[in-house]
Simulated scan of single mutants.
Amino acid sequence: MKFTDSPVIELSVHDTRLSFQQDNGSMHVGTSVWPCSLVLVKFAERWDPLTCAAAENPYAALLNFAGKRGVELGAGCGVAAMGLYALGLRDVVVTDIAPVMPALRHNLKRNKPALKKALKTAQLYWGNEEQTNSLKPPFDFVVATDVVYLEETVAPLIGAMERLVADDGVVLLGYQLRSPEAHEMFWEMCRGVFEVEKIPHEHLHPDYAYEEADVYVFRKKRK
């Protein structure tokens, strides 16, 4: 399920209004806006420590973005990175493969007036350790949404997550089942590397709690 076939998707994050142009006719899935990016951003907005009282917020520590570094993997149109930037994750690098970079850069430029800044970008193929190292890990937050759909990319994705995230950092994953084979492989491999926490569905933003979309938090297993 795509969010919509409309050529332009709009997303409000508190008082910031983001706008994403998508190309549904492209050969690359990264040029479309997929639901999990929206679900993840609106979850973070709902529990933003700056607007949700700590006593009522089970995610106050998790979503404290002040002074933290982040990187988005397979960013596509850049929805998650820009949404989290609007919520305070100021030091963030937005990455994808070469064919998707024009669409990504276009959307970053499109939202520069709303964000007051064009976010940093980098080309990244998950299995390329030289590219991974050039990002200067570790990161406090590794962000990925709707990235599990091909079996051959599962191992490189998990490897990139492990290399990029700090020992005390987290991976924020927006997830929807796309391929049963990739799904099975991903979760089997993940549980060997990460402690996995699934966000209860009732904790998602009520307007963006799609039945088929979930948010997970990964933390590195202690050696």
Results as ranks from 00 to 15, higher is better:
S19M: 09
K220H: 01
F20P: 12
V165D: 00
A160F: 00
E56P: 00
P137K: 10
A60S: 14
F218C: 12
Q131A: 14
F65C: 05
K2M: 10
C52G: 00
A166I: 05
A44H: 05
Q123G: 10
E181L: 14
S12F: 03
S134T: 05
W47L: 06
L50E: 13
E56Q: 13
Q22K: 04
M1I: 10
A80V: 14
E56D: 15
D48Q: 07
Q123Y: 02
T31Q: 11
N133A: 14
W187E: 06
D5Y: 03
A213G: 13
T121L: 01
L62E: 00
D5C: 05
N57A: 08
R110N: 12
N128I: 04
E212K: 15
R219D: 10
A55Y: 03
N107I: 08
Q131S: 11
P200W: 05
V147F: 03
V79Y: 00
V71C: 08
K220F: 01
P206E: 15
E188T: 15
L135A: 06
D146G: 07
L164P: 07
A98C: 00
T153N: 15
A53M: 06
P7N: 11
R178I: 10
G159L: 01
A44E: 08
V29I: 14
E195T: 13
H203T: 11
P138C: 04
L124I: 09
K198E: 15
L73I: 12
L173D: 04
P35H: 06
A75N: 01
K112E: 15
V148P: 04
A86W: 05
K109G: 08
G70K: 07
K223F: 05
C36K: 02
R178H: 14
E202C: 13
G70F: 06
N128G: 00
F139V: 01
E184S: 15
G192S: 09
E129I: 11
V100Q: 03
Y85S: 08
V193W: 02
T153H: 04
E130K: 14
L63Y: 10
P138I: 02
A66T: 13
L73S: 08
I158L: 15
G192H: 05
I199M: 13
M189P: 01
E10M: 05
C52Y: 02
A114H: 08
D48Y: 12
K136I: 07
K116R: 12
H201Y: 07
H203Q: 14
A44F: 00
L115M: 13
Q21K: 14
L135F: 03
V196M: 03
E195G: 12
L89K: 01
H205I: 11
H203E: 14
N107A: 02
M185H: 11
Q123C: 13
C52S: 09
L108T: 11
V217S: 03
K116Q: 13
S37V: 08
K109D: 09
A61P: 02
V33T: 12
Q123W: 02
D91M: 03
K120H: 07
G67E: 07
V170H: 10
A155N: 10
A114V: 09
A55E: 14
A60R: 12
Y210C: 02
E212W: 10
K223Q: 00
L108M: 06
F65L: 07
T153F: 06
L173V: 10
D214S: 15
G78E: 03
K198G: 13
H28D: 15
G127R: 03
N64M: 01
L119W: 09
T132P: 02
